[in-house]
């Protein structure tokens, strides 16, 4: 139950409205440090909207998204930060971030939250290797000293570039794409593009990796490979993973923690086993009558 004892990300009373449409309504859950957390729910439940709020692509209507970079934050530190108008604590240990106040590129660069997309978003015309180098933009940009050090090829920049290169090469080996490094990313087969997108996200050196339907469009063998890949990434880097997934075999196989939402409201939260047997979850997925849910003790008001 790390999501209670040691939360990395705490989502508090998150709401997102688009005009009259309520996509997320007062949603609260937390992501445990080092856990693989799955966010599931029927189509249109608001899962991707939650992702877009966490990664700053949407500004939530209300609510708080607090992220801590280490353990042992003093009690009340998050509330203190919330009362101030700062986005993050500077120099504090551990560092705290309020994601709802940050623009998307800062969430990636400072709070270190990386994401992939439901419909893959690579840079198709650039090579596989270039995709991974672009992901290290922030580190390289700092080393290139407003491009001047880079323009004149100073040693400090060349060293930083070499390091970026090595990191990219390491991730290429992890996802098994070293042979295709110099091919345009758009030429890769679908499954390889999915793996490349994960490798690219990992090149930003995240503490939280958000995967939007990573197994979509993969066959059974590829799904099993993906499961292995995600486990390997977690055990080697200690990154926490939050994923949206429809493939229940993947979800039940790798998740430490499953959060189920329907119509923007959380209906279940717990380990994979707890959630699997929850009558409300079964109802949401199989479309059982409301009366039956009530009879089964779901407690629909």
């Amino acid at each position: 139950m790390r999501w209670i004892s040691d939360p990395l990300l705490t989502v508090d009373h998150l709401s997102m409205r688009f005009g009259g449409l309520v996509a997320i309504n007062d949603l609260s859950f937390s992501v445990g440090r080092g856990d693989i957390t799955a966010l599931i729910g029927p189509n249109g439940a608001g899962k991707t909207t939650v992702f877009n709020c966490i990664t700053g692509f949407y500004k939530p209507t209300s609510g708080r998204l607090a992220l801590t970079h280490g353990t042992g934050a003093p009690a009340g530190a998050i509330d203190a930060l919330t009362r101030s108008d700062l986005r993050r604590t500077r120099g504090a240990n551990p560092e705290l971030f309020l994601l709802e106040r940050m623009p998307d590129h800062e969430i990636s660069a400072q709070a270190r939250v990386a994401r992939t997309f439901q419909n893959i978003r690579l840079f198709p015309g650039m090579t596989v290797l270039e995709n991974l180098i672009v992901a290290q933009h922030k580190t390289l940009m700092r080393a290139s000293g407003l491009s001047l050090a880079g323009l004149f090829g100073l040693a400090s920049y060349r060293a930083a570039e070499r390091k970026a290169f090595e990191l990219a090469r390491a991730w290429l080996n992890v996802v098994g794409l070293a042979d295709r490094a110099d091919d345009p990313a758009g030429d890769l087969p679908y499954g390889a593009q999915r793996r490349l997108e994960i490798a690219r996200a990992m090149c930003t050196n995240p503490v939280l990796l958000c995967l939007d339907e990573p197994a979509a469009g993969l066959n059974n063998r590829e799904s099993a490979e993906l499961t292995r890949l995600l486990r390997g990434i977690r055990s080697q880097t200690g990154v926490s993973i939050l994923l949206i997934e429809h493939d229940m075999s993947v979800v039940m196989d790798i998740s430490d923690h499953v959060v189920v939402i329907e119509y923007g409201v959380k209906i279940a939260d717990g380990t994979a086993n707890d959630v699997k047997n929850d009558p409300k979850v079964i109802a949401a997925y199989l479309g059982v009558d409301d009366e039956e849910v009530a009879a089964a003790g779901g407690g629909v008001p």
Partner: peptide
């Protein structure tokens, strides 16, 4: 190539 992907990578 893709502006949204750029934003997700901290650019």
């Amino acid at each position: 190539e893709d502006e949204i992907a750029c934003r997700s990578l901290g650019i």
